[in-house]
Amino acid sequence: MLFVLSQISMVAHGTYPNVLLGYTGVNEDLNGDGVKDAVIYYADAGRSYTDSVVVYDGVSNTPLAVFDGTSSRYPTHHYPLSSSRLLVIYTVPSGYEYEVYDNLTLDYTGGPVSADVYDFDDLTGDGVREILIYYGDSVEIYDGSDPTVKLVTYYKPTSASMWTGFPMGDGRILLGYLTTSGTVYFEVYENFTDLVYTSPSRTASGYFSLVAMDYDGDGLLEILLSIPSPAALYTYETSYPASFLKEKPEKIKGWKEAR
């Protein structure tokens, strides 16, 4: 048997003071050099908000970018939109403000909005994730490459107590609703706005989940509707090619390339 000498050695070490537990880690390559960088949320111990967010280069451990906060405006989340674009969310008294950085240089400032802001899957297929603003009864999605462009607005039907939605790829979007009368149904849109399918209603209470995936390996997407109570799982066949679905691209990219 051939034994290969194991080579394990420490290659990097960083020390970061006053971190806010739970929002700290070596987790993304934000400057595109192929090495994950450290994103550190700073706060005094025990405090529930952040003073600032600092991105440290994974190779040199020197600060690449600093997103400063004050007691009335502080960074609370960051979301990479692509390998070069970064969305940073700030909490302000009236809601949230957000900034988009291109190669860690400020490119766009949005808000304040009295709604939640977070990232969303790439609807336009340009490799940049989009920006989603969640108002509770409606959702606005903006182009992550050009945040001045609003791609679409979706409204929650008045009969719905809850909704969920996500892209199936290339402009196709799946929206699910739990109605006040205790049923669940979903809709499929093409070109962001064209309603092409409304499912039958299913009895449900509580919550539900929707997933689009190539479930049976036939090259076409299936839609899975899961209802916890009464427990049920429904599948729907579609004619959409599964190749449109960009499932977890950021998680498998490095591993696939390594093979």
């Binding site: 080579q7 050695s9 970061y16 006053n18």
Partner: peptide
């Protein structure tokens, strides 16, 4: 205890994840 975080990265010669 003073909320200082340290990260240590180790490389291996094990192929893949």
């Amino acid at each position: 205890s003073s909320w200082t975080a340290d990260f240590y990265v180790f490389s291996t010669n094990f192929l893949g994840v």
